[in-house]
Design a protein around this nucleic acid. Structure first.
Lengths: 345, 345
DNA sequence: GACAAAAATACAAACGTTTGCACAAAAAAC
DNA sequence: GTTTTTTGTGCAAACGTTTGTATTTTTGTC
C-alpha cells in the first residue's frame, strides 16, 4: 500500500545518469551542466521527490534542526520566545525540536541527551527552576554543539546568554513605587538561586538603598510567584507588617495579593500600591489594572535565534551576554492612571 | 577541538567485539549474552556514547519524531494542545518537531514538505485559516505517514480528527442567553469556511430555532474574532439593531464588545448580555467577568497523541472523529453571578 | 586534425546504524 | 560419543545521501 519513497537513485536511473550527478544538480553545484540540472529538477518534481534529511545529515555531518529546551511551552513568556526564535530560524532553513522540562532537572538532563542523539546543530535552553547542577552540559561543549541560554541562565556554562534586564526592571519598578509615596515596600521574590529572581531582588534593594530606605529582609517573601502564594503573603506579611507597597517578581503573585486585599476591603492603590513583573495579558484586565514590567519575549527570541545561528558558524564558543530592554508599564494598581505615562526604561 | 563523537564501532573496537554485537546489546536483543550485554552497557556509558538517531532511523526506516503544524505556538489554546501532546508523546519515546504556519496556506504546504523530508513518523495538524486546498496532503497519504487533524479539520483528508464540540458549546451558550431573557441575539462569527466557526454558527441557529426565535442573518457578523472587530460590530450592528445579547465565537471579540459598550455607558449584562468562546485566561479578569465556553485544550492534546500513536501501528488510516466535551462557564457578563452554577454540558 | 584545457559526468567510498544469514561453541538429547 | 538443538557472535549488505578522485566528453587553440 505504501508507495515506495523516491530516492535520488530512482531519479538517476530514470534519467540514465548517476546518483552523484543528481545530488549535485539538486544542490546547485556548478560542476553539473545547466541543461542536465534543469532536467533533474523537472524529473524530481514530477516524481514527487523529497530529499531524505536523515541520509543527508548523516553523510554531510550537518544538521538543520535546532533543539530548544524550555520549562513549559504553554506559558505566555516562553511561547512568545519560541515564536520569536522560529521567526528567524525558519527562514534561515532551520527547524525546531522543542522539549519541555516541566521544571524538572532530570527532564532537562534527558532532553539534552535526546537533542544530542538527534545530532542537532545547536541547543537553546532556559533552565528549569529545579536545576542546580550543570555537569550534563559538559558533553554538549565536548561535542562542539553551540549552546545558547536565555532568561534563566548560568555563567557556569560557556556560550551566549540572552537575558532580560531584570535588575533595571526591578529598580525602575521599585523606584516608581517609592516616587508614588511608598515607604515600606515588600518584595515577593522567586527562588533566589535562579538568576532572574536574584537580579530582581538586587534591583529592589538597590532602589531602596538609593532612596535611603533601610532594607528589611522580613519584607522579602521567597518562593512567592504563584497566585496562592501572593494571597497567603498578604495575610502573613503585608498586613501585619503595615506594608504600603508590593513589588512582586511575578504578575501572578501580584494578582493574588490584589484579590486578597480586595477581599479584606483594603484599597488599591490607596492603602497598598502594587507592581508586578512580566506584563501578563491579564495585567490590563484585572481590577485595578496592574502595573508591571514588560519583557519583550518575541525580541528575546529573535536575539536567541541570531546568537545560535552565529555560533553555528564559529568553532569556539564565546560567552557573550545580551540584555533585552524591559519597560515599566504604569497602571492603576500603583497609583498611576495614565497609560500615556508609560515610561520606557 | 571538537571531540570525535563515539560510535558503536568505537565501542566494538574497545571491547574486541563486532559492531553488530554492540548494536544488539544496546537494543536489548536477546541473542546476545547477558554478560557481554553488561560489559557493552558499561563501556558505552563510560565512553559517553550517544546513539546516532539519524543513522539508526535511516537504516531501520523507523523514526521517533512526530511533526506538528499549528497556526501559532503562542496562542493559549494551541500551546496547551501542544503541551497535552507532549505529555503523552515523550514518555512513549517520541519527540516533537513543531512548525508554525502563521495562518498562511503556503507556509502550511511548506511545513508538510519539511516534515516529510525529515521522515517523521506521523503528522499532527491544525489548518491555517487561509487553507482551502488540501491537495498537498496527497503525498502524506501516499507515503503512508499517519495524519491526525485537530480543531480546524477537514473531512477531505482521511485519518483521525480530534475536535471540540463546537456545536454543543454554541447551542448551550446561546440557550443560556435565551434563558436569561435575550430576545435579539447577535452572533460574532469567524471565517465560515473553517469548520469550528461554521459549527458555532450552526449551534447558535439551532438554539434560536428550538426557542422559536427567527434567525436574522443581519445579526451575524462574519470575521469577527479579534478585539477591534468586536468593538466595531457594537457600533455597526449591536446598537442600531437593538441587540440584547451577543454570542461571540471568540473571547477576544466579546472583550472588544464589552469595552465598547462600557465606553458608551451601556450596562452589561443589564442592556446587553454577552458570552464568548474559548475561556481565555482574561475571561475571569475582565469587568464584568465573561461567560465563555471552556475547551479542554490539554485533553485534546492527549487525545491527539493517543490517535497518532495508534495510527503509527496501523497500515491503513481510519477516519475516526473524536469530540472533546466543552463546558459553559457562566459569569457576570451574561447575567449569571454564580460561578457555582457552572454547568457541564 | 592533433592536442591541451576545461567542463561534465561517473565511480566508489563513506556517514553510523540495523539485520539476515552464516558459523562456531556450548548444551541437550539420544 | 555422536548428533541435534540452542545460544552467542561475526560477516557483510543495506539505508540514501555527499564528495574526493578518476574518467569521459566537449571546447578551444594552433
Amino acid at each position: 500500500m505504501v508507495k515506495k519513497r523516491v530516492t535520488i537513485t530512482d531519479i538517476a536511473h530514470e534519467m540514465g545518469v548517476t546518483p552523484s550527478t543528481v545530488s549535485r544538480a539538486l544542490a546547485g553545484n556548478t560542476r553539473v551542466g545547466s541543461n542536465t540540472r534543469q532536467r533533474v529538477l523537472k524529473v524530481a518534481a514530477q516524481m514527487g521527490y523529497q530529499p531524505n534529511v536523515l541520509a543527508s545529515s548523516l553523510r554531510s555531518g550537518r544538521s538543520d534542526t535546532i533543539g530548544m529546551v524550555v520549562p513549559r511551552i504553554n506559558r505566555h513568556f516562553f511561547s512568545h520566545v519560541i515564536s520569536g526564535v522560529e521567526a528567524l530560524l525558519n527562514p534561515a532553513g532551520f527547524n525546531l525540536l522543542i522539549i519541555q522540562t516541566h521544571e524538572r532537572e532530570e527532564h532537562e538532563r534527558k532532553a539534552v541527551h535526546t537533542l544530542l542523539r538527534n545530532r542537532v546543530a545547536g541547543i537553546i535552553i532556559s533552565h528549569s527552576v529545579e536545576t542546580k547542577g550543570f555537569s550534563h552540559y559538559q558533553m554538549v561543549i565536548d561535542e562542539g554543539v553551540p549552546l545558547v541560554q536565555f532568561d534563566r541562565v548560568t555563567e557556569q556554562i560557556v556560550g551566549a546568554r540572552i537575558v532580560n534586564d531584570n535588575f533595571l526592571g526591578a529598580l525602575r519598578s521599585t523606584q516608581h513605587l517609592i516616587k508614588n509615596g511608598c515607604k515600606r515596600i515588600a518584595h515577593f521574590a522567586g527562588a533566589l538561586h535562579v538568576n532572574v529572581y536574584q537580579e530582581r531582588l538586587d534591583g529592589y534593594r538597590y532602589a531602596l538603598e538609593k532612596a535611603g530606605i533601610e532594607y528589611d529582609p522580613s519584607l522579602v517573601v521567597e518562593n512567592c510567584i504563584i497566585q496562592e502564594a501572593g494571597q497567603e503573603a498578604v495575610a502573613r506579611i503585608v498586613l501585619p507588617k503595615k506594608v504600603d507597597g508590593i513589588f512582586a517578581a511575578s504578575d501572578l503573585s501580584a494578582l493574588g495579593a490584589i484579590q486578597k486585599l480586595k477581599e479584606l476591603n483594603k484599597a488599591i492603590p490607596g492603602d497598598v500600591k502594587i507592581s508586578g513583573f512580566a506584563n501578563e495579558p491579564f495585567a490590563e484586565m484585572v481590577e485595578p489594572t496592574l502595573t508591571s514590567v514588560e519583557q519583550n519575549a518575541f525580541e528575546m527570541g529573535n536575539q536567541v535565534a541570531k546568537a545560535v545561528i552565529e555560533s553555528i558558524g564559529k568553532d569556539e564558543p564565546v560567552s557573550e551576554e545580551i540584555h533585552i530592554p524591559v519597560r515599566l508599564i504604569q497602571r492603576r494598581s500603583s497609583g498611576s492612571d495614565a497609560l500615556l505615562m508609560n515610561s520606557v526604561v
